[in-house]
Design a protein around this nucleic acid. Structure first.
Length: 475
RNA sequence: GGGGCUGUGGUGUAACCUGGCUAGCAUAUGGGCUUUGGGAGCCUGUGAUCCCGGUUCAAAUCCGGGCAGCCCCA
Protein backbone atom coordinates (compact mmCIF):
# COMPACT_ATOMS: atom_id res chain seq x y z
CA UNK A 1 0.00 0.00 0.00
CA UNK A 2 1.38 3.39 -0.98
CA UNK A 3 2.00 5.38 2.15
CA UNK A 4 2.14 8.85 0.63
CA UNK A 5 -1.58 9.12 -0.02
CA UNK A 6 -3.15 6.50 2.15
CA UNK A 7 -6.08 8.73 2.90
CA UNK A 8 -7.01 9.11 -0.75
CA UNK A 9 -6.51 5.42 -1.34
CA UNK A 10 -8.71 4.57 1.59
CA UNK A 11 -11.54 6.90 0.69
CA UNK A 12 -11.37 5.69 -2.86
CA UNK A 13 -11.42 1.97 -2.14
CA UNK A 14 -14.57 2.42 -0.06
CA UNK A 15 -16.34 3.43 -3.24
CA UNK A 16 -14.48 1.41 -5.84
CA UNK A 17 -14.79 -1.93 -4.05
CA UNK A 18 -18.37 -1.13 -3.03
CA UNK A 19 -17.64 -1.51 0.67
CA UNK A 20 -19.66 1.32 2.13
CA UNK A 21 -21.82 4.18 0.92
CA UNK A 22 -21.30 7.52 2.58
CA UNK A 23 -24.37 9.19 1.14
CA UNK A 24 -26.87 8.31 3.82
CA UNK A 25 -26.68 11.91 4.88
CA UNK A 26 -26.34 11.71 8.65
CA UNK A 27 -22.89 12.54 9.96
CA UNK A 28 -21.04 9.49 11.20
CA UNK A 29 -23.67 7.03 9.99
CA UNK A 30 -22.81 4.99 6.92
CA UNK A 31 -24.33 2.21 4.89
CA UNK A 32 -22.31 -0.99 4.86
CA UNK A 33 -22.70 -2.66 1.51
CA UNK A 34 -22.89 -6.40 0.84
CA UNK A 35 -19.25 -6.93 -0.02
CA UNK A 36 -18.12 -5.48 3.33
CA UNK A 37 -21.03 -6.88 5.32
CA UNK A 38 -20.27 -10.40 4.18
CA UNK A 39 -16.71 -10.07 5.44
CA UNK A 40 -17.99 -8.64 8.72
CA UNK A 41 -20.42 -11.55 9.13
CA UNK A 42 -17.61 -14.02 8.57
CA UNK A 43 -15.47 -12.24 11.14
CA UNK A 44 -18.33 -12.26 13.62
CA UNK A 45 -18.85 -15.97 13.04
CA UNK A 46 -15.22 -16.80 13.74
CA UNK A 47 -15.09 -14.49 16.74
CA UNK A 48 -18.26 -15.85 18.29
CA UNK A 49 -17.13 -19.41 17.81
CA UNK A 50 -13.91 -18.68 19.65
CA UNK A 51 -15.81 -16.98 22.48
CA UNK A 52 -17.98 -20.09 22.78
CA UNK A 53 -14.82 -22.20 22.93
CA UNK A 54 -13.64 -20.34 25.98
CA UNK A 55 -16.96 -20.52 27.77
CA UNK A 56 -18.94 -17.43 26.79
CA UNK A 57 -22.61 -17.57 25.94
CA UNK A 58 -24.49 -15.12 23.71
CA UNK A 59 -27.08 -12.74 25.05
CA UNK A 60 -29.07 -9.76 23.86
CA UNK A 61 -29.68 -6.64 25.87
CA UNK A 62 -31.84 -3.68 24.85
CA UNK A 63 -30.34 -0.84 22.88
CA UNK A 64 -31.84 1.71 25.26
CA UNK A 65 -30.58 2.41 28.77
CA UNK A 66 -32.61 4.42 31.28
CA UNK A 67 -30.80 7.54 32.37
CA UNK A 68 -30.81 6.40 36.00
CA UNK A 69 -28.90 3.21 35.12
CA UNK A 70 -26.37 5.04 32.99
CA UNK A 71 -25.62 7.46 35.80
CA UNK A 72 -25.02 4.93 38.56
CA UNK A 73 -21.26 4.76 38.20
CA UNK A 74 -19.79 8.24 38.43
CA UNK A 75 -16.59 7.92 36.43
CA UNK A 76 -18.42 6.03 33.73
CA UNK A 77 -21.01 8.74 33.18
CA UNK A 78 -18.38 11.43 33.27
CA UNK A 79 -16.52 9.64 30.49
CA UNK A 80 -19.50 9.03 28.25
CA UNK A 81 -21.99 11.77 28.98
CA UNK A 82 -20.79 14.00 26.17
CA UNK A 83 -21.18 11.22 23.60
CA UNK A 84 -24.63 9.90 24.36
CA UNK A 85 -27.57 10.03 21.98
CA UNK A 86 -30.74 10.56 24.01
CA UNK A 87 -34.31 9.60 23.35
CA UNK A 88 -36.50 12.05 25.17
CA UNK A 89 -39.68 11.77 23.17
CA UNK A 90 -41.71 8.86 21.85
CA UNK A 91 -44.66 9.42 19.60
CA UNK A 92 -46.36 12.53 20.95
CA UNK A 93 -45.22 11.98 24.52
CA UNK A 94 -42.25 13.35 26.39
CA UNK A 95 -40.68 10.42 28.22
CA UNK A 96 -40.69 10.60 31.99
CA UNK A 97 -37.14 9.30 32.01
CA UNK A 98 -34.79 9.85 29.14
CA UNK A 99 -33.38 6.77 27.42
CA UNK A 100 -29.79 6.59 26.25
CA UNK A 101 -28.91 4.77 23.06
CA UNK A 102 -26.25 2.49 24.51
CA UNK A 103 -22.73 3.81 24.02
CA UNK A 104 -21.56 0.53 25.66
CA UNK A 105 -23.59 -1.90 27.75
CA UNK A 106 -22.12 -2.08 31.25
CA UNK A 107 -24.98 -0.09 32.73
CA UNK A 108 -27.58 -2.03 30.74
CA UNK A 109 -26.34 -5.44 31.75
CA UNK A 110 -25.26 -5.09 35.34
CA UNK A 111 -28.68 -4.36 36.86
CA UNK A 112 -29.66 -7.77 35.50
CA UNK A 113 -26.40 -9.33 36.69
CA UNK A 114 -27.43 -8.18 40.18
CA UNK A 115 -30.67 -10.14 39.88
CA UNK A 116 -28.94 -13.21 38.50
CA UNK A 117 -26.22 -13.44 41.12
CA UNK A 118 -26.96 -14.80 44.57
CA UNK A 119 -24.29 -17.34 45.39
CA UNK A 120 -21.02 -18.69 44.10
CA UNK A 121 -22.99 -21.17 42.03
CA UNK A 122 -24.05 -18.28 39.80
CA UNK A 123 -20.46 -17.35 39.04
CA UNK A 124 -18.61 -16.82 36.89
CA UNK A 125 -20.84 -15.03 34.44
CA UNK A 126 -19.39 -15.00 30.94
CA UNK A 127 -21.76 -13.41 28.44
CA UNK A 128 -21.28 -11.52 25.24
CA UNK A 129 -23.42 -9.73 22.72
CA UNK A 130 -22.82 -8.84 19.12
CA UNK A 131 -24.37 -5.61 18.10
CA UNK A 132 -24.33 -1.93 17.54
CA UNK A 133 -23.49 0.95 19.82
CA UNK A 134 -23.87 4.67 19.30
CA UNK A 135 -21.55 7.42 20.35
CA UNK A 136 -21.92 11.05 19.45
CA UNK A 137 -18.33 11.45 18.30
CA UNK A 138 -17.08 15.00 18.35
CA UNK A 139 -13.89 14.22 16.44
CA UNK A 140 -13.92 13.97 12.68
CA UNK A 141 -15.58 10.76 11.56
CA UNK A 142 -13.95 8.41 9.08
CA UNK A 143 -15.60 5.47 7.35
CA UNK A 144 -15.27 2.30 9.46
CA UNK A 145 -12.55 3.84 11.61
CA UNK A 146 -14.60 6.30 13.57
CA UNK A 147 -18.36 6.53 13.23
CA UNK A 148 -21.23 7.49 15.45
CA UNK A 149 -22.67 4.04 15.06
CA UNK A 150 -20.48 0.97 15.06
CA UNK A 151 -20.56 -2.79 15.16
CA UNK A 152 -18.73 -4.66 17.85
CA UNK A 153 -18.83 -7.51 20.27
CA UNK A 154 -18.91 -6.82 23.98
CA UNK A 155 -18.22 -9.55 26.50
CA UNK A 156 -19.04 -8.91 30.13
CA UNK A 157 -17.80 -11.22 32.86
CA UNK A 158 -18.21 -11.43 36.62
CA UNK A 159 -16.13 -13.43 39.11
CA UNK A 160 -15.98 -14.16 42.80
CA UNK A 161 -12.38 -13.06 43.07
CA UNK A 162 -10.07 -10.42 41.72
CA UNK A 163 -7.81 -13.15 40.47
CA UNK A 164 -10.64 -14.63 38.44
CA UNK A 165 -11.24 -11.29 36.78
CA UNK A 166 -7.56 -10.74 36.11
CA UNK A 167 -7.32 -14.13 34.49
CA UNK A 168 -10.23 -13.16 32.30
CA UNK A 169 -8.36 -10.10 31.07
CA UNK A 170 -5.49 -12.36 30.05
CA UNK A 171 -7.91 -14.78 28.40
CA UNK A 172 -9.34 -11.86 26.40
CA UNK A 173 -5.84 -11.01 25.26
CA UNK A 174 -5.36 -14.61 24.17
CA UNK A 175 -8.71 -14.62 22.36
CA UNK A 176 -7.70 -11.47 20.54
CA UNK A 177 -4.46 -13.13 19.48
CA UNK A 178 -6.22 -16.21 18.22
CA UNK A 179 -8.87 -14.38 16.27
CA UNK A 180 -7.53 -11.06 15.05
CA UNK A 181 -3.94 -12.07 14.64
CA UNK A 182 -3.95 -15.78 13.78
CA UNK A 183 -7.27 -16.06 12.01
CA UNK A 184 -7.64 -12.63 10.39
CA UNK A 185 -3.91 -12.08 9.93
CA UNK A 186 -3.90 -8.59 11.40
CA UNK A 187 -0.82 -7.92 13.53
CA UNK A 188 -1.08 -5.71 16.57
CA UNK A 189 0.62 -4.72 19.78
CA UNK A 190 -1.29 -5.30 22.99
CA UNK A 191 -0.68 -2.54 25.52
CA UNK A 192 -1.51 -1.86 29.08
CA UNK A 193 -2.83 1.67 28.67
CA UNK A 194 -1.55 4.50 30.86
CA UNK A 195 -3.87 5.36 33.74
CA UNK A 196 -4.88 8.64 32.15
CA UNK A 197 -6.16 6.74 29.14
CA UNK A 198 -8.22 3.97 30.70
CA UNK A 199 -11.88 3.16 30.11
CA UNK A 200 -14.25 5.32 32.12
CA UNK A 201 -14.90 3.32 35.27
CA UNK A 202 -12.13 0.73 34.90
CA UNK A 203 -9.24 -0.10 37.22
CA UNK A 204 -7.12 -0.55 34.15
CA UNK A 205 -7.42 -1.02 30.41
CA UNK A 206 -5.53 -3.15 27.93
CA UNK A 207 -5.83 -2.39 24.25
CA UNK A 208 -4.70 -3.82 20.93
CA UNK A 209 -3.25 -1.31 18.47
CA UNK A 210 -2.61 -2.15 14.86
CA UNK A 211 -0.58 -0.05 12.46
CA UNK A 212 -2.16 1.57 9.45
CA UNK A 213 -0.08 2.16 6.30
CA UNK A 214 0.35 5.86 7.01
CA UNK A 215 2.02 5.10 10.31
CA UNK A 216 -0.87 5.88 12.57
CA UNK A 217 -2.06 3.28 15.02
CA UNK A 218 -5.67 2.15 15.30
CA UNK A 219 -7.16 0.66 18.43
CA UNK A 220 -9.09 -2.46 17.44
CA UNK A 221 -9.92 -4.18 20.74
CA UNK A 222 -9.92 -3.40 24.43
CA UNK A 223 -10.34 -5.36 27.62
CA UNK A 224 -10.88 -3.72 30.98
CA UNK A 225 -10.53 -4.81 34.54
CA UNK A 226 -13.58 -3.15 36.02
CA UNK A 227 -12.79 -4.42 39.51
CA UNK A 228 -15.69 -3.74 41.84
CA UNK A 229 -16.32 -0.27 40.45
CA UNK A 230 -19.59 -1.31 38.87
CA UNK A 231 -20.58 -4.17 41.14
CA UNK A 232 -20.85 -1.78 44.09
CA UNK A 233 -23.25 0.81 42.63
CA UNK A 234 -25.18 -1.89 40.79
CA UNK A 235 -25.11 -4.19 43.82
CA UNK A 236 -23.92 -7.27 42.02
CA UNK A 237 -23.32 -9.38 45.14
CA UNK A 238 -23.00 -13.01 46.13
CA UNK A 239 -22.85 -14.95 49.36
CA UNK A 240 -19.32 -16.27 49.81
CA UNK A 241 -18.21 -19.44 51.64
CA UNK A 242 -17.49 -17.43 54.76
CA UNK A 243 -21.10 -16.34 54.93
CA UNK A 244 -20.31 -12.78 53.96
CA UNK A 245 -21.96 -10.92 51.14
CA UNK A 246 -19.32 -9.78 48.64
CA UNK A 247 -19.25 -7.75 45.47
CA UNK A 248 -18.23 -9.50 42.25
CA UNK A 249 -15.14 -8.65 40.23
CA UNK A 250 -15.84 -7.71 36.65
CA UNK A 251 -14.30 -7.34 33.23
CA UNK A 252 -15.50 -6.11 29.89
CA UNK A 253 -14.00 -6.89 26.52
CA UNK A 254 -14.75 -5.22 23.22
CA UNK A 255 -13.31 -5.96 19.79
CA UNK A 256 -14.48 -3.29 17.32
CA UNK A 257 -15.58 -5.05 14.18
CA UNK A 258 -15.72 -1.96 11.94
CA UNK A 259 -12.20 -1.08 12.87
CA UNK A 260 -10.95 -4.61 12.40
CA UNK A 261 -12.39 -4.48 8.90
CA UNK A 262 -10.77 -1.09 8.31
CA UNK A 263 -7.45 -2.58 9.37
CA UNK A 264 -7.90 -5.65 7.17
CA UNK A 265 -8.63 -3.49 4.16
CA UNK A 266 -5.76 -1.11 4.76
CA UNK A 267 -3.05 -3.53 5.81
CA UNK A 268 -3.53 -6.01 2.97
CA UNK A 269 -4.73 -3.69 0.24
CA UNK A 270 -2.43 -2.58 -2.54
CA UNK A 271 -2.42 -0.22 -5.50
CA UNK A 272 -4.76 -2.56 -7.39
CA UNK A 273 -7.31 -2.75 -4.64
CA UNK A 274 -8.28 -5.08 -1.83
CA UNK A 275 -6.71 -8.39 -0.93
CA UNK A 276 -9.14 -10.42 1.16
CA UNK A 277 -8.00 -13.49 3.08
CA UNK A 278 -9.43 -16.70 1.63
CA UNK A 279 -11.65 -17.68 4.54
CA UNK A 280 -13.22 -14.22 4.82
CA UNK A 281 -13.86 -13.44 1.17
CA UNK A 282 -17.41 -13.30 -0.19
CA UNK A 283 -16.07 -14.85 -3.38
CA UNK A 284 -13.06 -17.10 -2.85
CA UNK A 285 -12.41 -17.98 -6.46
CA UNK A 286 -13.64 -16.21 -9.55
CA UNK A 287 -13.67 -17.96 -12.91
CA UNK A 288 -12.96 -15.74 -15.90
CA UNK A 289 -13.74 -17.41 -19.21
CA UNK A 290 -11.81 -16.29 -22.27
CA UNK A 291 -13.05 -17.25 -25.71
CA UNK A 292 -13.46 -16.46 -29.39
CA UNK A 293 -17.02 -16.40 -30.63
CA UNK A 294 -16.79 -19.87 -32.21
CA UNK A 295 -15.44 -21.47 -29.02
CA UNK A 296 -17.73 -19.64 -26.61
CA UNK A 297 -20.15 -22.47 -26.03
CA UNK A 298 -17.62 -25.16 -25.24
CA UNK A 299 -15.52 -22.89 -23.04
CA UNK A 300 -18.56 -21.78 -21.08
CA UNK A 301 -19.57 -25.42 -20.68
CA UNK A 302 -16.11 -26.28 -19.37
CA UNK A 303 -16.22 -23.25 -17.08
CA UNK A 304 -19.50 -24.39 -15.61
CA UNK A 305 -18.00 -27.80 -15.04
CA UNK A 306 -15.13 -26.23 -13.10
CA UNK A 307 -17.58 -24.04 -11.20
CA UNK A 308 -19.59 -27.08 -10.14
CA UNK A 309 -16.48 -28.97 -9.13
CA UNK A 310 -15.39 -26.14 -6.83
CA UNK A 311 -18.87 -25.62 -5.45
CA UNK A 312 -18.98 -29.28 -4.49
CA UNK A 313 -15.76 -28.80 -2.58
CA UNK A 314 -17.52 -26.10 -0.56
CA UNK A 315 -15.64 -23.23 -2.15
CA UNK A 316 -17.42 -19.93 -2.69
CA UNK A 317 -16.91 -19.71 -6.42
CA UNK A 318 -18.32 -17.35 -8.98
CA UNK A 319 -18.30 -17.69 -12.73
CA UNK A 320 -18.19 -14.24 -14.30
CA UNK A 321 -20.64 -14.61 -17.19
CA UNK A 322 -20.88 -10.90 -17.93
CA UNK A 323 -20.12 -9.54 -21.38
CA UNK A 324 -17.09 -7.58 -20.26
CA UNK A 325 -13.69 -8.29 -21.73
CA UNK A 326 -11.29 -10.52 -19.75
CA UNK A 327 -9.02 -7.58 -18.90
CA UNK A 328 -11.93 -5.71 -17.43
CA UNK A 329 -12.88 -8.68 -15.30
CA UNK A 330 -9.33 -9.20 -14.10
CA UNK A 331 -9.20 -5.63 -12.87
CA UNK A 332 -12.65 -5.69 -11.36
CA UNK A 333 -12.05 -8.76 -9.21
CA UNK A 334 -8.56 -7.66 -8.25
CA UNK A 335 -10.03 -4.42 -7.01
CA UNK A 336 -12.56 -6.38 -4.99
CA UNK A 337 -9.83 -8.51 -3.49
CA UNK A 338 -10.92 -11.99 -4.56
CA UNK A 339 -7.97 -14.16 -3.51
CA UNK A 340 -7.97 -16.66 -6.38
CA UNK A 341 -8.68 -16.11 -10.05
CA UNK A 342 -9.18 -19.01 -12.40
CA UNK A 343 -8.67 -18.31 -16.09
CA UNK A 344 -10.26 -20.67 -18.57
CA UNK A 345 -9.61 -20.32 -22.28
CA UNK A 346 -8.95 -22.51 -25.27
CA UNK A 347 -5.65 -23.83 -23.88
CA UNK A 348 -7.18 -24.82 -20.57
CA UNK A 349 -10.16 -26.45 -22.21
CA UNK A 350 -7.96 -28.53 -24.50
CA UNK A 351 -5.70 -29.70 -21.69
CA UNK A 352 -8.52 -30.05 -19.17
CA UNK A 353 -6.62 -27.73 -16.89
CA UNK A 354 -7.09 -24.32 -15.26
CA UNK A 355 -4.80 -21.34 -14.89
CA UNK A 356 -4.73 -20.14 -11.31
CA UNK A 357 -3.63 -16.65 -10.36
CA UNK A 358 -3.34 -15.64 -6.73
CA UNK A 359 -4.12 -12.08 -5.77
CA UNK A 360 -1.37 -11.20 -3.33
CA UNK A 361 1.77 -11.60 -5.43
CA UNK A 362 -0.10 -12.41 -8.66
CA UNK A 363 1.82 -15.60 -9.26
CA UNK A 364 0.35 -17.77 -11.99
CA UNK A 365 0.29 -21.55 -12.33
CA UNK A 366 -1.51 -24.16 -14.36
CA UNK A 367 -3.26 -27.00 -12.60
CA UNK A 368 -4.71 -30.13 -14.22
CA UNK A 369 -8.41 -30.31 -13.51
CA UNK A 370 -8.13 -33.34 -11.25
CA UNK A 371 -5.82 -31.46 -8.88
CA UNK A 372 -7.91 -28.31 -8.72
CA UNK A 373 -8.32 -28.80 -4.97
CA UNK A 374 -4.77 -27.42 -4.80
CA UNK A 375 -6.15 -23.91 -4.99
CA UNK A 376 -6.98 -24.08 -1.31
CA UNK A 377 -3.33 -24.76 -0.65
CA UNK A 378 -2.33 -21.88 -2.90
CA UNK A 379 -4.76 -19.64 -1.05
CA UNK A 380 -3.50 -20.73 2.33
CA UNK A 381 0.10 -20.10 1.35
CA UNK A 382 -0.95 -16.71 0.07
CA UNK A 383 -2.58 -15.91 3.38
CA UNK A 384 0.47 -17.04 5.35
CA UNK A 385 2.62 -14.73 3.23
CA UNK A 386 0.26 -11.81 3.76
CA UNK A 387 0.27 -12.44 7.46
CA UNK A 388 4.04 -12.71 7.72
CA UNK A 389 4.67 -9.60 5.64
CA UNK A 390 2.22 -7.58 7.71
CA UNK A 391 3.78 -8.80 10.92
CA UNK A 392 7.23 -7.93 9.66
CA UNK A 393 6.09 -4.45 8.72
CA UNK A 394 4.75 -3.89 12.20
CA UNK A 395 7.92 -5.16 13.85
CA UNK A 396 10.09 -3.05 11.59
CA UNK A 397 8.12 0.04 12.39
CA UNK A 398 9.14 -0.03 16.02
CA UNK A 399 12.22 2.11 16.62
CA UNK A 400 14.20 2.97 19.72
CA UNK A 401 14.23 6.60 20.74
CA UNK A 402 16.14 7.98 23.69
CA UNK A 403 15.70 11.67 23.09
CA UNK A 404 12.64 13.76 22.39
CA UNK A 405 14.10 14.67 19.04
CA UNK A 406 14.59 11.04 18.01
CA UNK A 407 11.08 10.30 19.09
CA UNK A 408 9.67 13.19 17.12
CA UNK A 409 11.51 12.10 14.01
CA UNK A 410 10.41 8.51 14.41
CA UNK A 411 6.79 9.44 14.88
CA UNK A 412 6.87 11.83 11.95
CA UNK A 413 8.15 9.03 9.73
CA UNK A 414 5.19 6.94 10.74
CA UNK A 415 7.05 4.74 13.20
CA UNK A 416 6.19 3.59 16.67
CA UNK A 417 8.77 4.91 19.10
CA UNK A 418 9.93 2.76 22.01
CA UNK A 419 11.01 5.12 24.76
CA UNK A 420 12.09 5.20 28.41
CA UNK A 421 9.29 6.85 30.35
CA UNK A 422 8.91 7.84 33.97
CA UNK A 423 5.52 6.45 34.88
CA UNK A 424 2.29 5.26 33.31
CA UNK A 425 0.34 6.07 36.44
CA UNK A 426 -1.04 9.57 36.87
CA UNK A 427 2.38 10.90 37.92
CA UNK A 428 3.49 10.54 34.32
CA UNK A 429 0.59 12.47 32.89
CA UNK A 430 2.49 15.74 32.71
CA UNK A 431 5.23 14.14 30.65
CA UNK A 432 2.61 12.63 28.37
CA UNK A 433 1.00 16.01 27.85
CA UNK A 434 4.31 17.46 26.81
CA UNK A 435 4.76 14.69 24.27
CA UNK A 436 1.28 15.25 22.97
CA UNK A 437 1.88 18.94 22.58
CA UNK A 438 5.34 18.76 21.08
CA UNK A 439 5.23 15.59 19.01
CA UNK A 440 1.48 15.31 18.45
CA UNK A 441 1.51 11.69 19.41
CA UNK A 442 0.03 9.48 22.09
CA UNK A 443 1.64 7.35 24.73
CA UNK A 444 0.03 3.99 23.99
CA UNK A 445 1.29 2.21 27.10
CA UNK A 446 3.60 -0.68 27.90
CA UNK A 447 3.64 -4.04 26.14
CA UNK A 448 1.65 -6.86 27.66
CA UNK A 449 3.35 -9.61 25.73
CA UNK A 450 6.67 -9.31 27.51
CA UNK A 451 8.09 -7.60 30.55
CA UNK A 452 10.55 -4.97 29.37
CA UNK A 453 13.12 -3.60 31.79
CA UNK A 454 13.30 0.17 31.73
CA UNK A 455 16.77 1.66 31.46
CA UNK A 456 18.00 5.24 31.56
CA UNK A 457 15.90 8.28 32.16
CA UNK A 458 12.46 9.43 31.18
CA UNK A 459 12.57 10.93 27.75
CA UNK A 460 10.66 13.98 28.95
CA UNK A 461 11.42 14.82 32.57
CA UNK A 462 14.75 13.04 32.92
CA UNK A 463 13.78 11.21 36.08
CA UNK A 464 14.67 7.57 36.35
CA UNK A 465 12.60 5.64 33.82
CA UNK A 466 10.11 3.25 35.32
CA UNK A 467 8.62 1.98 32.09
CA UNK A 468 9.34 1.18 28.50
CA UNK A 469 6.54 3.00 26.73
CA UNK A 470 5.42 3.12 23.11
CA UNK A 471 4.55 6.36 21.41
CA UNK A 472 2.74 6.77 18.10
CA UNK A 473 0.26 8.88 16.26
CA UNK A 474 -3.21 7.51 16.46
CA UNK A 475 -6.47 7.45 14.60
C1' G B 1 -12.99 21.78 20.13
C1' G B 2 -10.06 25.21 16.33
C1' G B 3 -8.69 26.27 11.19
C1' G B 4 -8.97 25.40 5.93
C1' C B 5 -11.10 23.32 1.49
C1' U B 6 -15.26 21.29 -1.06
C1' G B 7 -20.54 20.16 -2.66
C1' U B 8 -22.68 20.04 -10.67
C1' G B 9 -26.35 13.35 -13.91
C1' G B 10 -24.63 6.83 -10.51
C1' U B 11 -19.07 8.21 -10.53
C1' G B 12 -14.97 11.68 -11.80
C1' U B 13 -14.95 16.52 -13.55
C1' A B 14 -15.60 21.63 -16.92
C1' A B 15 -17.93 26.32 -16.50
C1' C B 16 -17.55 29.64 -10.62
C1' C B 17 -12.61 34.14 -9.79
C1' U B 18 -15.05 38.26 -13.83
C1' G B 19 -23.39 36.45 -12.89
C1' G B 20 -26.05 36.10 -19.08
C1' C B 21 -27.00 31.60 -25.17
C1' U B 22 -29.29 24.67 -25.08
C1' A B 23 -24.63 23.50 -18.02
C1' G B 24 -19.49 20.87 -21.66
C1' C B 25 -16.44 16.29 -21.27
C1' A B 26 -15.21 11.30 -19.59
C1' U B 27 -17.08 7.07 -17.36
C1' A B 28 -21.27 4.31 -15.87
C1' U B 29 -26.30 3.05 -17.45
C1' G B 30 -30.92 1.44 -21.42
C1' G B 31 -31.27 -0.06 -26.73
C1' G B 32 -28.69 -1.64 -31.49
C1' C B 33 -24.37 -3.52 -34.11
C1' U B 34 -19.77 -5.57 -33.04
C1' U B 35 -16.25 -7.84 -29.66
C1' U B 36 -13.26 -11.45 -25.57
C1' G B 37 -5.52 -14.26 -23.19
C1' G B 38 -5.05 -7.28 -19.10
C1' G B 39 -9.89 -1.85 -18.17
C1' A B 40 -12.42 -2.88 -26.83
C1' G B 41 -15.10 0.04 -30.83
C1' C B 42 -19.26 2.56 -33.45
C1' C B 43 -24.50 4.49 -33.42
C1' U B 44 -28.38 6.11 -30.21
C1' G B 45 -31.22 7.18 -25.68
C1' U B 46 -31.80 8.45 -20.27
C1' G B 47 -29.68 11.24 -16.51
C1' A B 48 -27.09 16.82 -12.69
C1' U B 49 -26.02 22.52 -10.33
C1' C B 50 -26.97 19.74 -1.74
C1' C B 51 -31.08 22.54 1.12
C1' C B 52 -33.26 27.34 2.83
C1' G B 53 -33.03 32.47 2.38
C1' G B 54 -30.84 37.12 0.27
C1' U B 55 -28.71 40.44 -3.76
C1' U B 56 -29.98 41.02 -9.13
C1' C B 57 -33.63 42.22 -15.01
C1' A B 58 -30.83 37.51 -14.57
C1' A B 59 -27.50 32.91 -9.78
C1' A B 60 -24.16 26.56 -10.64
C1' U B 61 -21.49 31.30 -10.25
C1' C B 62 -22.00 36.65 -5.43
C1' C B 63 -23.73 36.98 0.10
C1' G B 64 -25.84 34.60 4.82
C1' G B 65 -27.46 30.22 7.29
C1' G B 66 -28.11 24.90 7.39
C1' C B 67 -26.69 19.92 6.09
C1' A B 68 -22.89 16.69 4.32
C1' G B 69 -17.86 15.26 2.93
C1' C B 70 -12.46 15.84 2.92
C1' C B 71 -7.75 17.76 4.89
C1' C B 72 -4.75 19.94 8.77
C1' C B 73 -4.38 21.02 13.94
C1' A B 74 -5.92 20.12 19.26
Amino acid sequence: MVVSNFSDWYNNIMKEAELVDLRYGVKGFIVIRPWAMFILKKMYQIYEEELHNVGHMPVHFPAVIPESYLKKEEEHVAGFEGEVFWISKAGFNELEERLALRPTSETAMYPMYALWTQGKKDLPIKLYQSGTVWRYETKATKPLMRGREFLWIEAHCAFATKEGAENQVMEDVETTNKVISSSFGIPFLFFRRPDWDKFAGADYTCAADTLMPDGRVLQIATTHLLGQNFSKPFEVKFMDDDGEEKYVWQTSYGPGMNRILAALISIFGDEKGLVIPWHLSPVQAVIVPIFKEESKESIMAYSREVEKLLKNKGIRVMLDKSDETPGFKFNKWEQKGVPIRIEIGKREEENRSVTVVERYDRSKRTLPLDTIGEIEKVANEMFEKMKEDAKKRLEESIVEANTLEDMENAVKEGKIARVPFCSLSLEGKECYEKIKEKVKAEVRGRLLSKKEEARGNCIVCGKEAGEVAYVARQY
